[in-house]
Design a binder for these strands. Structure first.
Lengths: 115, 115
DNA sequence: CTCCTATATGCCCATGTATTCATATATCCG
DNA sequence: CGGATATATGAATACATGGGCATATAGGAG
């Protein structure tokens, strides 16, 4: 039960849903997600921790950067199912499509050194 | 997006999940749900309203009673999908199975007049 | 209409959550 | 080592949420 609730709570915030939709396109570092959402960096880190605890995302260190990608579903069947659903959901949502449109142009080298 | 968030928030509370699992067995009135959960009656009414606003349950008046059943999925595709998933999920959870075991014995006539 | 019962709503309180700022940690480079 | 950069953590604050009590609403019985 707690595991299920953790996944549902993680999916109950629009900014976290936006993060998942972004990561559905490609792996991203924290500063790239920050640029896409327009939030403060600590806020993004906390959202990512909540998503990670729910098994919805995984992180991979690459030097100074931390790359986040969608979870593989091993840690939670609920997360795996919902990630599958989310691939088809919300693509027509104006907020989502606006953010997804700028994902290809997110460049960590252009973003991070200007924080 | 708001519709999706509404469904996820509705599913983010253990008592509301328990209500859905109970209604998966059969239609129930408020006092029967109250007896199953052990909560105050107004609390149950508020949970039911949140579930109804998300499209997860529907109500049907029958005289003095209000019978709640699972939503038919017409109001929200997200609710419809999650209700389908929930049918298979959490059946082995101790909290859930304990409540489901007593659903067949819930009797509105025996419960409600003793409030 | 009056009384009774089942449910809904308003108010209040305790707790949880999202956010930001300031600061700590970690990693690379010289 | 020391400095710079990317990310994480802690404290503080505004707001949302779950809970119960008191009360309002709605429908049936007499």
């Amino acid at each position: 039960m707690k595991e299920f609730i953790r996944v549902m709570k993680a999916l109950s915030d629009p900014n976290r849903v936006k993060i998942l939709k972004m990561l559905n396109r490609r792996e991203l570092c924290v500063c790239e997600i920050q640029a896409g959402l327009g939030l403060a960096q600590p806020t993004v880190s906390k959202h990512l921790k909540i998503l990670e605890d729910a098994g919805l995302v995984q992180k991979r260190k690459e030097g100074l950067w931390v790359n986040y990608r969608l979870g593989d579903g091993d840690s939670s069947p609920y997360a795996a199912t919902l990630l599958g659903n989310l691939k088809h959901w919300l693509n027509d949502d104006p907020e989502i499509s606006a953010i997804l449109a700028q994902v290809p142009d997110l460049n960590r080298d252009a973003i991070c050194s200007r924080q």
